[in-house]
Amino acid sequence: MVDPKLICRLRCPIEGTPLHLASDSLVESVNEAIVAGEKRDRHDQKISSPIDGGLVNQQGNRLYPIRGGIPTLIADEAIDLNG
């Protein structure tokens, strides 16, 4: 997983606000939606591979996926949590 010392330094690339680690239950729910074909990124591309974890913005409406211990902080690859 991502080093906690690193997480406190990471910021949302869209808003510049701090990010926090997603709960296990949120990651599980996102992965269920990915498997069901219901999750798309900000480019409206279907997300096909499950995530290992995620970083959530302060508003709790966007998740940046973590795969293989590496966070993806590319704005267009964020996962919308509203809907």
Rank of each mutant, 00 (worst) to 15 (best):
D41G: 04
D76H: 14
M1W: 05
R11K: 10
L21D: 09
R67E: 04
P4S: 05
V56S: 08
I74Q: 10
Q59N: 12
A36P: 06
D41W: 06
G54H: 07
I70D: 04
V2R: 09
E32Q: 15
G60P: 13
L63Q: 12
R67N: 07
E77V: 01
S23N: 02
P71T: 02
E15R: 07
D24S: 13
I7S: 01
S49K: 13
D80G: 10
K46V: 12
V2F: 05
G53T: 02
G37I: 00
A36D: 07
Q58T: 15
G16K: 05
V30H: 07
S25N: 07
D52V: 02
I51N: 01
Q58G: 10
L6A: 09
A75V: 13
E77Y: 01
D44P: 08
T17Q: 10
P13S: 14
N57P: 09
G68R: 00
C12E: 08
R62M: 10
K46D: 11
G69L: 11
P18N: 10
V30Q: 07
P50A: 04
I34Y: 03
P50N: 08
H20G: 10
L19R: 06
K5W: 07
P71N: 01
Q58R: 14
K39E: 12
I47N: 06
P18Y: 10
S48F: 10
I74L: 15
D76S: 15
L26Q: 08
A33D: 03
L73I: 15
V56M: 10
H20A: 14
E15D: 02
E38S: 05
S29P: 08
K5G: 04
P65I: 03
Q59K: 14
G69D: 11
A33L: 01
K5R: 09
V2P: 09
N82L: 02
P65L: 02
